[in-house]
Design a protein around this nucleic acid. Structure first.
Lengths: 338, 338
DNA sequence: TTCATCCCCCAAAACGTTTCGGATATGATT
DNA sequence: AATCATATCCGAAACGTTTTGGGGGATGAA
């Protein structure tokens, strides 16, 4: 590996001049600059980023910290698609991306600050963290720039990007109401996610606007898990046979709900309408295919990165961004025939 | 950020001693070692990895270079699951992971060597590269340690990990033959993937063992794409109505095949048996669910990382690993009734 | 001639580590 | 008393950059 010294020697100038020539400073003669560039190319010189970072105290690196990077994530692809967005944006802006993953085990050993400082990243995007995670508090106190995904919290150094969950949920439920459904259940996610509360809010607001009373026993906790959703749905339908429609806070849970309904012999969608949230791949392939609220996970990652790099480069501006959802009609919803 | 100098000052020793104390050298008194550790913790000292790497010429970092890290990858999750495996193994072994993605555009600008040297990674895992990619040649010439995924090529510094594609394909086709099918089509992947050839070999070998002549016109190119597979399947079935079964070189293509068959009014699986390859999530949810050959993508990533770190640490040993497949029976295959 | 301006260039310090080659003190051995 | 081995410690160099604070020469103006 050729160093800057090699180039300097060969060019008969000082390392200072090489550095300044290559970095586009104006106090170097154009002729010598060209010569230096020539030689650099000849020697296949490329600056040692470690050395550069060490002196400049900038690494041009961001980290994607994901809590629970597990194979189960394949089902909703949330993390993968966020990752794609982050990667694309970071690439465009010349930032390197390091992937950091934690789990409750690792968190015992290292604090957030340690974890992040060690990796020498300038900023962090946080994905998949729950609201009761001890890291979250640390993040908000720390002065390491950070963007949270789907956790609407801010501080001087942290911002967030999320989807308009309330509005999305509202349009889902409104869709069901428009189809004539009066008794609509909800399979919500666990309470360690902000989005659960938001989606519940949307559910309630939609009901309220149509003058339908909210019934707490119509809402159950599916914990964002397919199996849990299946058993909870079964129980719910058993207990409340009057339900003709379900709003699920995630497509994956909707898959569980579909299975539960099928097992109970309910005809879909004639005897039970189901709408999900997320628009995961599966929702287009299931039988019946799933009417759902699409959120753009790629964009979530992309915007998070944009926000983060803006912060890093000192561009003052909003540190939050809320994305819109899109309603997607498929087969799993139909008019209420009761 | 506290530096080693701060610790040294506070402890009243030299930086050398602090360094050696913290790194477990024996030529430092246990008492002072304890004192230094104490102070280090007190000052929240953690060594600057940039500085360390600079002098040690080791970064303890590996790169996952993926060609075409795109949102479309959501459908088969190949990259995501490999990533999970790489991440887990790297984490266990104390390596950092940086994600590098390229596309044909970026490859114009930077050679493989540049791309990799700049990032200061010690080794690379290469995923998603096609056989006609110019990078591949460069990889084999380069002396940067590298593990290829699903490309069985070796050199002094590069090894590979892959699945036993031929055997997997063979068992898929054998399954169909055992069900009494005599005319079996194949929707293969494009020829820029090694696995395509291997799976074709397995297909042929299975036929041969049962004494059935190979018919080249039964094999079409679905390019690993769902849509392409759909149109190719439609054409194939039209041209060869005698076909009662299909072997698809990927589950995603099988999805296309299923759709094509349905559109033609074929009853599945009674009038057409289909077996896929991969065992992607979708295959369990489609109607009919897909009989397939499972390959462990997570393990692929995990083993790749193990191989790579072995190389990096000078452990001489095999630089290749071939994983086995598992046959999974679902609804899409049944006995031949003709 | 003298002085101020540019234009180019450079030596040296700094970043935070690790490591090499001693240095010192202590105690044991001869 | 002299020598030697051992246990601890340390100064300084090295890694490859960027940046700071000039320095010298040419040019133009006074």
């Amino acid at each position: 590996m050729a160093t800057i010294r090699d180039v300097a020697k060969r060019a008969g100038v000082s390392v200072t001049t090489v550095s300044r020539a290559l970095n586009g400073y104006s106090d170097v003669n154009e002729k010598t600059r060209e010569r230096i560039k020539e030689i650099a190319k000849e020697l296949k010189y490329s600056p040692n980023l470690l050395a550069r970072s060490l002196v400049m105290k900038k690494t041009k690196t961001i980290g994607l910290l994901v809590s629970g990077l597990k194979i189960e994530g394949s089902k909703d692809n949330f993390t993968y698609e966020v990752l794609c967005g982050v990667n694309d944006c970071a690439g465009q802006l010349g930032y390197e991306l390091v992937l950091i993953s934690t789990d409750s085990q690792k968190q015992q050993e290292k604090t957030y600050n340690q974890l992040v400082q060690e990796r020498k990243v300038e900023g962090i995007i946080l994905q998949g963290i729950k609201t009761d995670d001890p890291y979250l508090e640390e993040v908000l106190k720390s002065d390491i720039p950070c963007i949270l995904i789907d956790i609407p919290m801010e501080s001087d150094s942290v911002g967030y990007v999320t989807t308009d969950n309330k509005d999305g949920a509202k349009s889902a439920v409104t869709h069901l109401l428009d189809l004539g459904h009066k008794h609509i259940g909800m399979i919500n996610g666990h309470s360690q996610a902000f989005v659960s509360q938001e989606r519940l809010d949307g559910y309630q607001e939609a009901l309220q606007e149509k003058g339908i009373a909210f019934n707490g026993s119509y809402v159950v906790d599916g914990a964002f898990l397919e199996e849990k959703a299946e058993t909870e749905t079964a129980k719910l339908l058993q207990k409340h046979p009057e339900l003709t429609a379900l709003f699920c806070a995630s497509d994956l849970m909707a898959m569980g709900a579909i299975r539960a309904a099928k097992k109970m012999g309910r005809k879909l969608p004639e005897e039970l309408s189901i709408v999900g949230f997320d628009n995961i791949i599966l929702s287009a392939y299931s039988t019946p295919s799933l009417t759902t609220i699409a959120q753009d996970r790629y964009q979530l990652g992309f915007e998070a990165t944009k926000l983060l790099t803006d912060m890093l480069e000192g561009n003052k501006g909003s540190k939050r961004k809320v994305l819109n959802t899109t309603f997607i009609k498929r087969e799993s919803t139909s008019e209420n025939h009761n």
